[in-house]
Simulated scan of single mutants.
Amino acid sequence: MSGAPTTIISPEQLLRELDNPDWVIVDCRHDLADPEFGRAAYADGHLPGARFVHLDEDLSGPKDGTNGRHPLPDVAALAQRLGELGIDRTKQVIAYDDAGGMFAARLWWLLRWLGHERVAVLDGDLHAWRRHGGQLTRAPVVPSATRFEPVRQPIDAPLLDVLERYRDEHTLIVDARSPDRFRGENETIDPVGGHIPGAINRFFKDNLDADGNFKPAAQLRREFTTLLDGVTPAQVIHQCGSGVTACHNLLAMEIAGLPGGRLYPGSWSEWCASDQRPVATGP
């Protein structure tokens, strides 16, 4: 569908489409320290018509101790869950959270991974929705189940690919974690502090302005062009702690008109699970 939102959408735009039967809104709220937060927050109030997805249960696959904290879900399992939510190839999906798009961007990327480009993140998250007069409801939502047909896209970079490329001068690894965690300081989530040798840091929160909205496309383009320093987007592998906030950088680059980067889903939590892989610390 021409003109379908594929990156971000403003609260004003979404308010105009609330009654559109071809649009599906998905609540992605989560708290890494409290896995039940999102479900409780949804029950307490959500956007009208919104369905809820859980980062650990719906947007991630089983952990085996070596594949990271949020491994990719099985394609068939994710497709089934999307169908249960009423999402098929005809639907426009809008993902939101209350964390600047930190978790909503994960659903954005996963849908694109399965070949569905009609997906956008609510700009400014739930806070902007409320500021613009958007209401919340506790009304239960019972989606009409459908069938989602996945067409998997090669936009992920598995561990073996990263191992092969991380020292390649034509590959740039961009780490979305906070600068202190990138340096190996104040690590409280993963058992080892540091980063993949050769990686550079772009904290995902730097994609947002003071109000929590994504910066203008032109500004994001300038910032990422400077960061990449001649490397093309197709040569970029994005990672973070567990493959969640790296999606935010991928979304920001898409907004900036710099598509083509790939996600290392296992990210630092998978990389540091083996002491056979090198670790760098400092800037």
Rank of each mutant, 00 (worst) to 15 (best):
G193A: 04
D180P: 00
A210R: 11
P154S: 05
Q153G: 09
D209R: 07
P179K: 06
I189H: 11
D209A: 08
G194C: 12
E223G: 03
I200K: 04
A199H: 00
A157P: 02
R221L: 11
T226A: 13
P154T: 04
N213H: 13
E185F: 10
H195A: 14
I155Y: 01
L163R: 10
Q219K: 15
D175C: 10
A217G: 06
V174H: 05
D190V: 03
E164I: 02
Y166K: 09
R222L: 08
F214R: 06
D209E: 10
G193I: 01
R202M: 11
L220I: 08
D161I: 00
Q219A: 14
K205D: 11
F224S: 03
D211K: 14
R183N: 12
P179G: 01
H195W: 00
N186M: 11
P191T: 03
D211V: 04
L160S: 14
T226F: 01
D180Y: 03
L163T: 09
R167I: 04
L172C: 13
R177N: 04
V174G: 05
I196P: 09
Y166L: 14
N207G: 00
I173G: 11
R222P: 00
R177C: 10
I173V: 15
E164T: 10
L160M: 04
H195D: 07
R202P: 03
E185D: 15
E169S: 07
I189L: 15
V162A: 09
R181M: 08
T188I: 09
D206P: 01
G184I: 01
E164S: 15
Q153R: 12
G198A: 07
T225L: 00
G198R: 01
E223F: 02
F214C: 05
A218S: 14
R165V: 04
N201Y: 01
G198E: 07
I196H: 06
V174P: 06
K205G: 09
T226Y: 06
P216C: 04
K215C: 06
I196E: 09
R165H: 15
L227A: 12
G212E: 03
A176P: 11
K205S: 12
P179Q: 12
P216E: 06
R181V: 01
P154N: 03
P191I: 13
L163M: 11
L220K: 09
R183Q: 12
V174M: 05
L163A: 10
D168S: 08
F224R: 02
L227Q: 08
P216R: 09
P154M: 00
H170T: 13
R165I: 04
A199K: 01
H195Y: 02
R167M: 02
A217D: 13
D168K: 02
D156V: 15
R183P: 08
I200A: 10
D180K: 15
R221S: 14
D206W: 14
P158R: 03
G194T: 08
F214G: 12
E164Y: 04
R167K: 12
D175Q: 02
